[in-house]
Design a protein around this nucleic acid. Structure first.
Lengths: 191, 191
DNA sequence: CCGAAAAATTGATGTACGATAAGAAATTTA
DNA sequence: TAAATTTCTTATCGTACATCAATTTTTCGG
């Protein structure tokens, strides 16, 4: 939790009351590998801040295939924002790829924080802007790069991710099959 | 401008001072079809709120091909957020697809507004959350749907857009060539 | 440390969409 | 409204990646 407080203080001035309030509504948790924090179809009201480890959010299409929306490593937030924003049940599943520590918030309580402590808003704005920018980049990459180029960029962005993800996690993030990713890796190694 | 003020008031309570300040830093403009509001390579410091018409943001890849990031219709904001967030020059071009009215803001002045009038923050948060959700949906669609399915969804989302966009605008948003889109339309018409 | 299960690789074949080019249609401009 | 320009369509052929299936490798529980 000190981790997050420090992050917040890097962006804004946080009063002692606000800090205490954040403490009071959050819960630091150690999550074992493989556990599921949000499950498709269920009600979503939690938002997670990752301080260590890696989580993944994905959906399952009508043919049963998984599609990875996000890998959340240190300093990123993860949840099912579509469900929360539209007040629907989860279409995403959020699972833990390696033992991780997260700070769990109730979405509504976090929302209330903003009205209680408006000073906290600029941090949230910063987070959301960063998120929008990263999504814009991902869409532009998807539109203009080949699978191999996307894979190389992905490795730059998540340098040691292959030590704890499955091949098909990455493939389903890049928008290709695991077989194609396997071939891309063979090609890459050959050089 | 009344348009935007009304929107804001639908989300938050806006004091008279805040409203006057917004007026003082914004400029309502009528933009002729074809004009360019932000050009790749140049410095970006403007953000636009569309009250009528339609703008498009796109980038040009190393082969000279265009890729559409966004269509901004009524009630959406548009700019080059990647450039603004990273404080770099524009990688996107924002052009006007049909005569439009927009409200122009200076990005820094809009940012200052938040410190002057924190009451305005929840509106910005709402806007950013909506944006994140729409980008999440787009990415998931791109990962799991065929070109035809994406095109049909696109038409639902932007019902009358074909009356003022070029075929290749839409194709480059969907991630296909204009020739493929042409074939998809023929197929669709045949049924 | 072993065996079962999951994941990754490899090969053969299929397909959705891309590239190129040429002609038709629509739009803009004079 | 005619000419010029841009956009759209259509056809042929090419390719990146998908699918399916068999085999090897890795992971993990007991």
């Amino acid at each position: 939790m000190e981790e997050l407080i420090r992050k917040i203080k890097g962006i804004i001035n946080l009063s002692l009351e606000a800090e205490e309030h954040l403490h009071s509504i959050s819960k630091e948790k150690t999550i074992p590998k493989g556990s599921v924090l949000i499950r498709e179809g269920q009600t979503v009201n939690k938002i997670y801040f990752v301080t260590d480890g890696c989580l993944r959010s994905y959906c399952i299409d009508k043919n049963g295939k998984e599609h990875t929306l996000q890998f959340a490593i240190k300093d990123w937030w993860i949840s099912d924002y579509i469900a929360i924003h539209n007040n629907e049940s989860a279409i995403l599943t959020v699972e833990c790829l390696k033992e991780s520590t997260v700070i769990e918030f109730n979405a509504e309580e976090l929302d209330e924080t903003f009205s209680f402590f408006p000073e906290y808003e600029p941090f949230q704005r910063y987070i959301l802007e960063r998120h929008v920018v990263s999504l814009h980049k991902r869409i532009l990459n998807q539109l203009q790069l080949t699978a191999t180029e996307r894979y190389n960029l992905f490795l730059e962005e998540y340098p040691d991710i292959e030590s704890y993800t499955r091949n098909y996690h990455i493939a389903s993030y890049l928008g290709i099959t695991q077989e194609s990713l396997s071939r891309i890796r063979v090609e890459k190694a050959r050089k």
